[in-house]
Write a protein that binds this DNA or RNA. Structure first.
Lengths: 190, 190
DNA sequence: TTCTTTTCTTAAACTACTTTAATTTTTTTG
DNA sequence: CAAAAAAATTAAAGTAGTTTAAGAAAAGAA
């Protein structure tokens, strides 16, 4: 819980009592590599905070090809926040790329915190804003930049992930083939 | 107002008294071709229903290039619904592509209807769902299809628009150059 | 450890789309 | 209406990224 407390405090002003109340609502869970934490069209019962490991959020396109939307590593939130909030079905899949330890919060507990802890309302507002911003930025980058520039953005956003996850998944995130990413990487080495 | 009533009745069950109450909250407005109805980062004071004409919703990418996101013609809603709802700043620009007649509703009136007319709540829920669905579909199509296939989708979605708006704007919507769209069209003619 | 499977690399051929530029057509404006 | 401006057409050359295929390296399983 130390990690989550630290993250919350880095975002909003919060008393120690509120923080305690808050952390009580989370449950630690583990998932092993390749396991799915969420599948499209299922109902969204929880959202997660990463303590250890890395997951990918992805969709299938109309030809059945997978596209990675985002990665989430230590001290990041993930889950289908939008569907969680609106009580609609999941719009994407989420899969562990490494063995993963998370803090999960159910909708009941989430709603409780929203009502009882004002700081949590503020905190989630920031979360949603960041998620939206990052999503919009991603779209703009895809429209504006070449594959190599997009790869630079990836490296900047996820400094250590290029060592941790397979090229295949990074390529899918960038919207290119693994072969072409291999060429970009070779070129960058000089 | 006839048009709007008809549209609402095609979506939800609604009494004539509610319908009257509802229509009273809208104001007819006109905009001339090329005029802007909304500009990015401005506050979103109203959303619109098209009585006559056509508008485009677009963004600028990180290189300052315009990208058309969607077109709205007769009997469609448009506006930055998300920002309107969340009281945040506009995420895109909206410009008339023809002389346009719309029904505008202010946030105050919108909120009033939400509280007073249950059918309106249901109606807007459907609106939001459709908007989201169409948005997701657009993203999937861009990921899955070639330019020519995307043009076919455009023709299906907007059957008469290919005659009404310039190729330049259609190309921007499809994410290709006007020159390439010209080639696609020639090829399709046989 | 060894065997199998998956991932990565490299390179050549290919293709969907862009760029440039010149010409024509259409639309806008005074 | 004529003049100017904007949009569309065409074609040739160029390029970012894909496809295919084969071998090398790494990871996973037994």
């Amino acid at each position: 819980m130390e990690q989550l407390s630290k993250h919350i405090k880095s975002v909003v002003e919060v008393s120690d009592t509120s923080l305690k109340l808050l952390c009580d609502k989370f449950v630690e869970k583990e998932f092993s590599k390749k396991e799915h934490l969420l599948e499209i069209n299922n109902s969204v019962r929880e959202v997660y905070f990463v303590l250890k490991g890395c997951v990918r959020t992805y969709i299938y396109d109309l030809n059945g090809v997978e596209h990675n939307i985002t990665f989430s590593e230590e001290n990041w939130w993930f889950g289908d926040l939008q569907s969680f909030k609106n009580r609609t079905q999941a719009s994407f899949n989420i899969q562990a790329l490494e063995d993963v330890v998370v803090l999960a919060i159910s909708r009941e507990n989430w709603d409780m915190l929203i009502q009882e802890v004002p700081a949590f309302v503020e905190y989630t507002r920031v979360l949603f804003r960041n998620t939206m911003f990052s999503h919009e930025n991603r779209i703009l980058q895809n429209l504006s930049y070449t594959a190599e520039e997009r790869y630079d953005c990836f490296l900047k956003k996820y400094p250590d992930l290029s060592q941790r996850i397979s090229q295949k998944h990074i390529a899918s995130y960038l919207g290119i083939t693994p072969e072409f990413l291999s060429m970009i990487r070779r070129k960058k080495k000089g």
